[in-house]
């Protein structure tokens, strides 16, 4: 059964058609890549799906429910987590606090103004458990701003996991990482998806990673879907090849 149905999304900015009739269907537990050259509309699509942008037309159904028109914080509560291309953490808070504050929100405790935050021991344990999952438990008391780039990305994934999403959307999860860090992150994502039945949608420019972990790949170019299929199908698709290498330029 499809957990996410994106139907005929159209979005224009001024005269520019950023998304032209984009349709996408993702099965529960699937790992799906969305790729395309710069400016293909990947980020716009993610922003529409998480309520940051309103589309001109089309709809998005998540887990049987129409989510277009909801503000981001409500869409999150429905079970869509998101990590960003530009690392998006709480820099002057500790690694622990970064995840703990997300768990407070998830458990509906954020409004509690009178109990000491550190005394929520169950949430504390859960925080440590998530940090262990992403391999940051040993750095739990460090300020997030002084982590390495790879660790910051991992922390961001941990924050997203804390809202216990059914679907996690990742915008270039390995951008700016060393080869070693990327490999670690990729296996982390695979493991989480397998263990928790989590559905993943991600964009990525590193093709090694895209082909290593995706079950299906969608290719966008100038806002339109030019291909959607298994890694093998995508590799063989001449349209995709052209999108990446550029059109043969005929003498003008």
């Amino acid at each position: 059964m499809a957990i996410l149905e994106v139907r005929n999304i159209v979005k224009s900015f001024g005269g520019l058609r950023a998304l032209q009739d984009v349709t996408l269907s993702v099965e529960k537990g699937e790992i799906r890549a969305v790729i395309g050259p710069n400016g293909a509309g990947k980020s716009t699509l993610f922003n529409v799906m998480t309520g940051l942008l309103a589309p001109d037309s089309g709809n998005v159904v998540f887990d049987g429910e129409q989510i277009i028109g909801m503000p981001p914080h409500r869409i999150i509560r429905k079970g869509i987590g998101r990590s960003f291309q530009i690392t998006n953490i709480f820099p002057r808070m500790s690694v622990f606090e970064n995840v703990q504050v997300a768990l407070f929100s998830h458990h509906g405790k954020s409004r509690n103004p009178l109990h000491l935050a550190r005394k929520f021991t169950e949430i504390g344990e859960e925080t440590i458990a998530i940090l262990e999952q992403v391999g940051l438990a040993g750095k739990y008391d460090m300020s997030a701003s002084i982590l390495s780039h790879g660790d910051q990305k991992r922390l961001e994934i941990a924050i997203s996991l804390a809202s216990r999403p059914k679907l996690l959307m990742l915008d270039e999860p390995t951008a700016g990482m060393s080869r070693f860090e990327s490999r670690e992150t990729v296996s982390l994502l695979q493991r989480i998806s397998r263990e928790q039945g989590l559905t993943l949608i991600f964009t990525e420019h590193d093709m090694d990673i895209v082909f290593a972990i995706s079950e299906k790949i969608m290719v966008l170019q100038q806002g339109a879907v030019i291909a959607d299929g298994t890694p093998a199908e995508i590799k063989a698709n001449p349209e995709v090849r052209k999108a990446y290498l550029g059109e043969e330029i005929t003498e003008s």
Binding site: N88, I89, M93, V101, S110, A162, S163
Partner: peptide, 17 residues
């Protein structure tokens, strides 16, 4: 703690719900 998260990164905080 939530207020502090808003101070540090309000967009991220809204993505916590």
């Amino acid at each position: 703690a939530t207020l502090k998260a808003i101070r540090e990164n309000s967009q991220r905080a809204s993505f916590l719900g």
